[in-house]
Design a protein around this nucleic acid. Structure first.
Lengths: 217, 217
DNA sequence: TAGATTGTTAATCGATTAACAATC
DNA sequence: TAGATTGTTAATCGATTAACAATC
C-alpha cells in the first residue's frame, strides 16, 4: 500500500538529508515545521520538499505543517531504518577496518556479522566486534547467516571475481568501494562509493575556478 | 578558451567514469573507439557520450571515432589530473588514516602534506608519509605550504568549527566526510562523501524490493 | 568516391518550480 | 470564520535521446 509507482533516484538521494535535518530538529525540541521553514534551513525550495514527501503519500496537514517526529519516523521507515541489516566486510584493509569500526552504522541498525580477507596473515585478527576469516568461508557463511549486505573493499582486480561469487548467494545488496562497475544479477542492488571519482570532481572544481580567474580579466 | 559556459553537474559526474574506461582501453592496447562501441561497453547511449564530450569542444573525428589516448589525456586535463594537488588530513581516526595510506590518490597526483588531530596522544604518530600535528598548527601550515584541499574526517560536532577556521585560509576545497553540511564562503568548493547517506540508499533499495515482492502476489 | 561516425540541432522526456484550490 | 499551509495540478526548465547534415 505504501508504495506503488517507481520513485525517482533523485528523490531517494534526498531522503537521507531530510532525515538528518529532522533528527537535528528533534534534538532542538522542535515539534512542527512547515515546508517553507524547512526549505530555508536546507536551501531547497518548499515546492520540492512537498513534492518529495507526496511521493509517499502526504505526511503533513494543511494549515499546520509537518509533525517533526512523525515525519522523521516515516522517512526512517521508508529508508528501511526500522529494521536491522546484517553485513559482511570483504577485504579487511585500512578502509575496510575503518568501516567495521565505525559505530554510527551500528547505531542505525547496520551490523557487521563477519569480515573476510584473502591474506592468511590477517585471518584470525579481530577488527571491531568480528574476527577476520578466510575467503573460502565467504559464501557458506553468507547463506547460513542470511546476510543482506556485502561491503566490498578489495582491490579492483579482485572485485569482479568476488561479485560473481556473491551472485550465487542470498546477498541482497553490495556496497561497493572497489573502483570498477560490478556485473551482478538484477536482484542484487549495487551502491557504488568511488572515492577517487569524488576526488576528481573536486579537482575539476578547483581547475575550473582557475580558468574563470584567468579568463575574467 | 577551453571552457566558457557552465558545464552541468551531471556531465562532470560522468567524467571520472569515462576516464576509468579509457584507462582500461589503453591497457588493452585499443587505439581508437567510436561512441557506439564505448556506449555498449559503458551501458549509456552514444548520444550522451557525444554530447558530453562536445561540452568541451569535440575530441573526435568524423568517420574515425575517438583516439583513446588523446581522449584520455584531454579528460584528465579537464579533471585537473595533470597537476599535483596538495592535501591535508584533518581528523586522524580510522577513516582518516585509511585515506592517507591509500596509494591510489598519490598515483593520481593527490599528495598528503600533513595530518592533524586534536587528540594529544595521536600527535607525533606517523600515518602514511606524514606525522600527525596538533590542531593549533593547522591554519598556519595550510597558508605556508599553500595547501589546496582539506580532507575532513572529524566527528559531526567539530566539523563546522573547523570549516570556519578553514574559511580564513588559502584552502581551495574541502573533501567532507563529516555528516553535516558545511557553511563556507563561495570560493571554497565542498565535495561531500556522506557514507551513511549512501548506506541508507542501499537500505531503501532492499526495503523497496521487499515491498515489490509482497505486493506482487 | 563511398562508408563511417562525428558534431549539432531538434524532439522527447523527466524533474523542478510555481500557482492555487482544498482543507485543517 | 479567517489564516496558514498542505497536496496537487500546471508551467517551466534542463537533461537525455533521436535524427541528420557535415566531413573525415
Amino acid at each position: 500500500m505504501l508504495e506503488e509507482k517507481e520513485i525517482s533516484q533523485a528523490v531517494i538521494s534526498r531522503l537521507p538529508r531530510y532525515y538528518r535535518y529532522l533528527q537535528d530538529l528533534i534534538e532542538e525540541g522542535t515539534e512542527r515545521i512547515s515546508s517553507r521553514e524547512l526549505s530555508s534551513r536546507m536551501h531547497v525550495t518548499a515546492s520540492q520538499i512537498r513534492q518529495d514527501f507526496n511521493n509517499f503519500g502526504g505526511f503533513g496537514q494543511q494549515g499546520y505543517g509537518y509533525n517533526v517526529q512523525y515525519l522523521h519516523d516515516e522517512i526512517g521507515q521508508i529508508l528501511g531504518l526500522d529494521q536491522e541489516h546484517s553485513m559482511v566486510l570483504i577485504g579487511a584493509g585500512n578502509l575496510g577496518q575503518a568501516l567495521v569500526g565505525y559505530m554510527n552504522f551500528k547505531r542505525r541498525g547496520f551490523v557487521f556479522k563477519a569480515a573476510f580477507d584473502c591474506k592468511p596473515e590477517l585471518v584470525g585478527k579481530k577488527v571491531g566486534q568480528v574476527v577476520i576469516r578466510p575467503m573460502s568461508e565467504l559464501t557458506t557463511l553468507i547463506d547460513r547467516e542470511k546476510i543482506e549486505i556485502a561491503v566490498l573493499t578489495v582491490p579492483k582486480g579482485a572485485a569482479v571475481e568476488i561479485a560473481n561469487q556473491l551472485s550465487g548467494t542470498c546477498i541482497r545488496a553490495i556496497w561497493n568501494f572497489a573502483h570498477v562497475d560490478l556485473p551482478v544479477p538484477e536482484r542484487i542492488q549495487v551502491e557504488n562509493v568511488h572515492l577517487s571519482d569524488s576526488l576528481m570532481k573536486l579537482s575539476y572544481q578547483i581547475r575550473s575556478d582557475d580558468m574563470n580567474e584567468s579568463t575574467k580579466q
